[in-house]
């Protein structure tokens, strides 16, 4: 563990908590893409299958349980608890356009052709595109509430910090996970235009921000 990865995990946790608390306190999920949240729950489910089979550390196990619980809680709030505020007309991204290529690629490009490894690879590739329905929804509705922007900022920051972690681990312990690195770079690139807008607009207190 290094400070970059710890900061990344904390940023990820903050992002998930920001969204969950926003929905819970405003008792509404307007402007939130339920599809992206379902995809994130799927990412955690397919990635953390080794939760009971391999013990890495208490931190690792606790964080996996927390991420799984919070992501399913978010999906529950959107599709069950506050479903009448779910904006399905604007959450229309065709997730099959993400799932089909990701499934295909995880069968083609993986470290070993075993169910656990293919599911892990699937989760890595899926995570890099899981935010697309949310970004698409923001372009469609024309703007995002500032709290949603903070969510996206910390979510994008988490994988950017992981990239720094991978550089650090490569130079200190020769660790290199090609699939995770390539996918993580792609994922972070998707946030770049958002990062630019976030810094130039949201942090200047303009609250609402619209993606181009």
């Amino acid at each position: 563990m290094n400070i970059f990865r710890l900061a990344g995990d904390m940023s990820h946790l903050v992002a998930i908590l920001i969204l969950l608390l926003k929905i819970w306190r405003s008792r509404s999920c307007a402007g939130i893409s339920g599809k992206s949240q379902v995809l994130f729950a799927l990412v955690f489910t397919t990635r953390y299958l080794d939760l009971f089979t391999s013990f890495i550390s208490a931190y690792n196990t606790v964080m996996k349980v927390v991420f799984l619980a919070l992501s399913y809680a978010t999906v529950y709030l959107i599709y069950m608890r506050f479903r009448n505020s779910y904006d399905s007309e604007n959450d229309t991204f065709r997730v099959e356009f993400l799932l089909v290529p990701v499934i295909g690629l995880s069968f083609l490009e993986n470290y070993s052709f075993t169910p656990m490894e293919i599911l892990w690879t699937f989760s890595i590739f899926l995570e890099s595109v899981a935010i697309m329905p949310q970004l698409f929804m923001i372009t469609k509705t024309g703007e995002a509430e500032s709290i949603t922007n903070h969510y996206l900022f910390f979510l994008g920051l988490y994988r950017a910090l992981y990239i720094v972690n991978w550089v650090w681990r490569y130079h200190t312990e020769g660790f290199f996970d090609q699939i995770a690195v390539v996918s993580g770079v792609v994922q972070t690139i998707f946030y770049c235009d958002f990062f630019y807008l976030y810094v130039t607009r949201v942090l200047r207190g303009r609250g609402k921000m619209s993606l181009p």
């Binding site: 890495i56 964080m63 991420f67 490009e109 470290y111 070993s112 290199f176 996970d177 995770a180």
Partner: peptide, 10 residues
């Protein structure tokens, strides 16, 4: 490509 070591990352 590289076989990834134990998955110690989240």
């Amino acid at each position: 490509c590289h076989r990834s070591r134990t998955k110690d990352e989240l």
